[in-house]
C-alpha cells in the first residue's frame, strides 16, 4: 500500500493512510479511538507487543500529529497517558471510511 498510486487512480485502497495502515499502528489508533485515553501498559497488553516496538510506533504517530502523550504519576509510579489528537481522530475516521469503501459496509 505504500507504493505510489498510478496517476488517475480510482481504487479506494490508494486512499488508505499509510501512517495508520500498518498492523501495530492500526491497533494503537483503534484502541485510542475507542477509549478517550489509555495508558502505555494497556496498549502494550491489548496489542501484545514489546515496550520498544510500541514506543517506536507511538513516536511515528506522534510525529504525524495523530497521538498525544501525557506523562504523569500515579502515586510514585510513572504513567504515560495516550490519546488521539483532533487530527488523529479525523484521520482514523477517514481511514474507516476508506476501508468501508473497499470491502463494502460490513
Amino acid at each position: 500500500m505504500s507504493a505510489k498510486p498510478p496517476e488517475g487512480h480510482t481504487h479506494p485502497r490508494f486512499d488508505l493512510d499509510d501512517v495508520i495502515h500498518a498492523p501495530v499502528r492500526l491497533s494503537i489508533m483503534a484502541a485510542l479511538a475507542a477509549a478517550d485515553e489509555a495508558d502505555f501498559r494497556f496498549l502494550k497488553e491489548t496489542i501484545e507487543v514489546s515496550d520498544s516496538l510500541l514506543s517506536k510506533h507511538l513516536l511515528a504517530l506522534e510525529e504525524a500529529g495523530y497521538v498525544n502523550a501525557t506523562k504523569g504519576y500515579e502515586g510514585k509510579r510513572p504513567r504515560t497517558w495516550l490519546s488521539l489528537t483532533d487530527q488523529g481522530r479525523a484521520a482514523f475516521t477517514n481511514y474507516m471510511d476508506v476501508l468501508r469503501r473497499i470491502i463494502g459496509n460490513p
Partner: peptide, 13 residues
C-alpha cells in the same frame, strides 16, 4: 482478565 493497564476518560482524569 489479563489487563492491568487502564483506560480512562478525559473528564475522569
Amino acid at each position: 482478565d489479563r489487563h492491568r493497564g487502564q483506560v480512562s476518560a478525559a473528564w475522569y482524569t
